[in-house]
Design a protein around this nucleic acid. Sequence first.
RNA 1: CGGGGAGUAGCGCAGCUGGUAGCGCGCAGCGUUCGGGACGCUGAGGUCCCGGGUUCGAAUCCCGGCUCCCCGACCA
Length: 565
Amino acid sequence: MRATKYFGKTLRDAPAEAETVSHRLLLRAGMVQQLAAGIYSYLPLGWRSLNKISTIIREEMNRAGGLEVRMPVTQPRELWEESGRADTFVPPLAQFEDRRGRMLVLAPTHEEAVTAMARANIRSYRDLPVTLYQIQTKFRDEPRPRAGLLRVREFEMKDAYSFDADVEGLDTSFNAMADAYHRIFGRCGLQVVMVEADSGPIGGKDSNEFVLLAESGEDTILICDKCGYAANSEKASSRKGQSPVEAPLPVETIHTPGIRTIDALAKSLGIPASRTIKAVFYSAAGEVVLVSIRGDLEVNETKLRNALGGADVRLATADQVRAAGLVAGSASAVGLDRVRSVVDDSVTAGGNYVAGANREDRHLRNVNYGRDFKADLMVDLALARDGDACPKCDGTLRAKRGIEVGHIFKLGTRYAEKMGAMYLDAQGVPHPIVMGCYGIGVGRLLAAAIEANHDGRGMTLPRAIAPFEVYLASLGDDADVVSAADSLYRDLEAASVDVLYDDRDEPPGVKFNDADLIGPPLRVVVSKRSLKNAQVEVKSRKAEKPASHPFGDAVEVVRAALEQV
RNA sequence: CGGGGAGUAGCGCAGCUGGUAGCGCGCAGCGUUCGGGACGCUGAGGUCCCGGGUUCGAAUCCCGGCUCCCCGACCA
């Protein structure tokens, strides 16, 4: 493609609204353009990269046995009433009335539509298993779109849905998709890790996220440095360590004037925080819950929410705490029976803890679970942190930042049961179809790839997803230079090299800067200086200096160099 | 939804003690240049977010609204 025939402009300055690196670079390179909050147009350059990603996804879905389908973006609201998600989906469904007064929704995801497709076409166990997928636009009216393409309202998403006769079949389909995901991200040249994840309101027994490691990421994941255990921070567990086993001693009340935090308590008593019990107050569905956890640990609110049956959980307000009769700074579960007590399993590991006395300026020594306080619920509630011990081996967990680019779920029979998607087994007995779903945000993946692949000059996307493979630039308007560059351009095109030919009448600095901004992995320069020696210059995007090669070998040199980047 | 910030040329911004809009980049033309956003001359380009009010006069002051961004809440 000749730059003089192309559409879209590079910007020297990024628009003020863009703060995130990928957002700035996408706008500066002229890849996307914003129409409204979280709603973007793709210009030719951005669409090229997006399509390269889509093509890789499509090839790997097909290889894994997936069948591509296309489903409606506008769907009758009744379909969502069947699944029970018409009023519960978050964010709420975007919907409108058609001219006959029927309510239509803009699909935020396609479980309902694909289940309708399945129940109309699957009758028998002989029809199973099957995996259908789509790469389509979806719309979610997100409460807060942000960071360019990282979190948008209208977006391209690949969603695959598997249908199996039983959970063993689902496991097989799920693993096949996990393998395909590894291949997809690998082919995109991206370092992605699969981590255990919380399945959230979608439900199901297993769920894994695919996270692109990037410092600017919004998600925290924990990875064991030894055994490969990896989970996002909502899900991750860690070994909390054993406190010394001691015979329970009698409880003593101690005077602790002005001490209201675990740090201060531990310091004043000269003990580690791990010998104390911290009380944290939450409000769940209007009820105040007292969470007890060892003093050196923190509460993982997702685990707490799951333990409480999915209720909305947030820190209790000072008013709620007071109304519940709790003494902030000196609270504990000891002697409290009118407040629900949820206990992290860490406090069962040892004994003789220091805990609040539920009186101002008083704490208790030698508090023991079971003898001195009880739990209405006893589970793992701790937030795993960098440096914690791995739950699976004797390694250490390391916290890393990342961006969620894919998420796969074992859905089970939830949708099939609600929507009547059944098959008959060999005995003629009906069963609900067992489903899985597997998503990749295509636009988010592009943005994430830029977050992970850029430098001070612009994008350094891997070859497989960069908008072009080669940036060919001619310097100056010398007739020999122009004709040499023209002919090299034709030869590269003929050799099926994906080349952007900068044939504009611009000074070298402009061309070099645009080459670095757009960032094809290879830059080829034809100039009077190099042509004098019958040479061209080839430079990889990440190299400091170019290398000169005989002009006649240019195509071969480029093809070889592309294999290396 | 809570908190904060911002809307003036395509982009970045100034003008805001009221007097009818400017700078840089970009864009168009001509010329000189041609190895990291080069230089000169000429030129085009504005609903100063919208509506109302105050005033002889509003980008500027007042009231109401809209949009966008950031933090939080929420979220495949």
